[in-house]
Design a protein around this nucleic acid. Structure first.
Lengths: 155, 155
DNA sequence: AATTTGTAGTTGCACAGGAAACTAATTATG
DNA sequence: CATAATTAGTTTCCTGTGCAACTACAAATT
């Protein structure tokens, strides 16, 4: 294959993710939602399964535990989630949505869905699927190479 | 199309770019290169065209000018680039590679190329091309919607 | 049972991005 | 020509990430 080094930038971690993140943040602000894309990615898990552990949130969003700690700090400051220690294992803290956390699900989900629709407008569905599969394969290829998240943890 | 909100995270700005960035940073460190992925993206432009303006670097990597300022601060501290004011327009500063900046091209490019090869190993070339096109189309779709970078500037 | 090893989460440091306010210089306008 | 609008770049504030050191606790080892 004709390898061009700059592809890895333009292609995977470059301007497209930067722009998507920027637009999504602006769209949240338009709807008076004071959350970030990263915070949303945790909330999205909690809306589906309230009471995850921090470890679980990290494994599923592929973030370092330190990042999870800090994202939850912000969410807790805004009274969107609370951390509840596990009585059986006092190292563990379960993360629960507050009433406020539950109440923003509908609006936030709508913003994300509309932004996503806009992002993929006019692109044939099968191409979007291929793109997703390629990115997932890239993930698998690199995850083998020594990261502490194993495939089974993230699955 | 069957829209799943979480796709926008998993798919475009989620774990794959995070992992690619992480692995690339580690691979730079293994080769004793003290640069980041973001710094590399600027150097890659300079190796092809020395003496870009900061505005140009921002337009081509799709970063805010403030980000460019800070990335160049770091590169200048490491004696990898220097900023030279334009005599004709004293607002403008041209960015030039130093001898050190030129000397790391080969190693840095090799690291990026090998990481990229590893990332796309086993994925049919035509699928990688489709993936790139999809991400570029996503970029175009969202760029229309009110960003100050116009298509012509980034082209 | 006491020590070692492993795990969940936190904190400090360095680096990166977005937005907005700001400076200095240039170009457009009246 | 003088003022207004624009442009290039910097700075500040807030948020997010990686890594490493750290705390607290649990589980395994001897």
């Amino acid at each position: 294959m004709n390898i061009r080094e700059e592809d890895i930038y333009n292609f995977i971690i470059g301007r497209t993710p930067i722009l998507v993140n920027r637009i999504l943040l602006r769209n949240f602000r338009k709807e008076k939602l004071d959350i970030t894309m990263e915070q949303w990615s945790l909330l999205d898990l909690l809306w589906k399964k309230d009471g995850c552990t921090q470890h679980e949130l990290g494994a599923r969003t592929f973030r370092e535990k330190a990042s999870i700690t800090r994202l939850l700090d912000k969410l807790e400051q805004q009274n969107i989630v609370i951390r509840v220690p596990d009585r059986r294992d006092r190292r563990v803290r379960f993360v629960y949505l507050t009433a406020k956390g539950k109440s923003i699900e509908e609006t936030a989900t709508r913003v994300v869905r509309e932004t996503y629709k806009h992002a993929i407008a006019g692109i044939p569905e099968e191409q979007v699927l291929i793109c997703k599969r390629v990115l997932n394969q890239v993930f698998e290829n690199l995850a083998e190479e020594g990261d502490h998240w194993t495939a089974c943890e993230t699955a």
